[in-house]
């Protein structure tokens, strides 16, 4: 994996020539950066302010105006009262569905990815690289191509429309990425470590648990964050393989927003969207470094 050196080591901006044009350029730079920051922040700002306004204020006020009177009514509705079609229980049950779905799926796919990566990187056998290539390619297929047979397979296995069914799907299609993460991490560890441990008498599993696992905290973090973000944010599998009571939060959010019954409650929509986005946003703010590592590891391999 390419670790991105986000600390400034060699920046090109060097020579401090104090000409007025340099200063003007510097100001232009700050203005541009600020404008872009506004562009990225604006939707979040609008979401938050809208979610705190009453419907009345939304109709009469401006999109970007701050709320005149802050109300948490929309949040309450979004969490426990908004309608997703026929049911009107808000996002809450679906939020928990997503938690129940994401936690096991993240754990299982990370554990399997760690073991797979360990085998591929450190216990090379004939064909291991081909297996890795095949798994890696699995990361890149458009999932539409497995949607139909998977729907039938889940039916055959008797887990169609259930949370275990969704866990199964997410584990299978997350394996390629988790294996890639761990493989690329373990490949940088010298083979002599395994040799030394073999001479010391340790076996395959002992070496993994005593030597490799304690080394793996950074990559476990990357894998967990990546998988959590992917699974929490997934919509395609959720909408294809869940049934009325087992939908994940993204599907429920979409249903709330697109439910045609009654008046359009934009403030509730925004509150619901924020609720659905909070967990991953939280993870991003908390562990952005690892989030970025996961993102780039998926694309900059080697």
């Amino acid at each position: 994996m390419t670790d991105i050196p986000l600390s400034t080591q060699t920046s090109v901006a060097g020579a401090d020539r104090k000409g007025w044009s340099t200063i003007a350029l510097r100001w232009l730079l700050f203005v541009m950066l600020g404008l872009f920051a506004l562009f990225y922040l604006m939707p979040l700002f609008v979401m938050v302010t809208t979610s705190l306004k009453s419907l009345e204020e939304i109709r009469t006020g401006s999109l970007i105006a701050l709320p005149r009177s802050v109300t948490l009514e929309a949040w309450r509705t979004a969490w426990s009262g908004a309608c997703t079609g026929i049911q009107c229980e808000g996002l809450r049950p679906y939020f928990w569905n997503s938690v129940l779905l994401a936690v096991p799926a993240v754990l299982i796919s990370t554990v399997l990815g760690a073991l797979n990566g360990y085998v591929i990187a450190q216990w090379r056998f004939k064909g291991a690289n081909i297996i890795f290539a095949l798994m890696l390619f699995g990361c890149f297929i458009p999932f539409q191509v497995v949607l139909l047979p998977m729907a039938r397979m889940l039916g055959i296995l008797g887990i169609a429309g259930t949370i275990p069914g969704l866990i199964f799907v997410h584990v299978i299609y997350g394996l390629g990425f988790t294996t890639l993460f761990f493989r690329n991490y373990y490949v940088t560890i010298p083979h002599e470590l395994v040799k030394a441990a073999k001479v010391d008498g340790a076996g395959f599993l002992r070496i993994f648990f005593a030597i490799f696992l304690p080394l793996s905290l950074p990559i476990i973090t990357v894998s967990v964050i990546w998988q959590f973000t992917q699974i929490w944010n997934d919509f395609l599998f959720g909408v294809s393989f869940s049934s009325a009571g087992t939908q994940p939060v993204t599907v429920a959010l979409n249903n709330i927003v697109n439910s045609t019954t009654g008046v359009k409650e934009y403030n509730v929509d925004m509150a619901a969207a924020i609720i659905a986005g909070l967990p991953t946003l939280f993870v991003y703010v908390l562990a952005g470094k690892y989030f970025i590592r996961g993102l780039t590891a998926g694309s900059v391999k080697g």
Partner: peptide
């Protein structure tokens, strides 16, 4: 047997 390696191969977390 016992073996000493070029990279020392010390277990980094121990």
């Amino acid at each position: 047997i016992a073996m000493v390696f070029q990279s020392y191969a010390l277990y980094p977390t121990m």
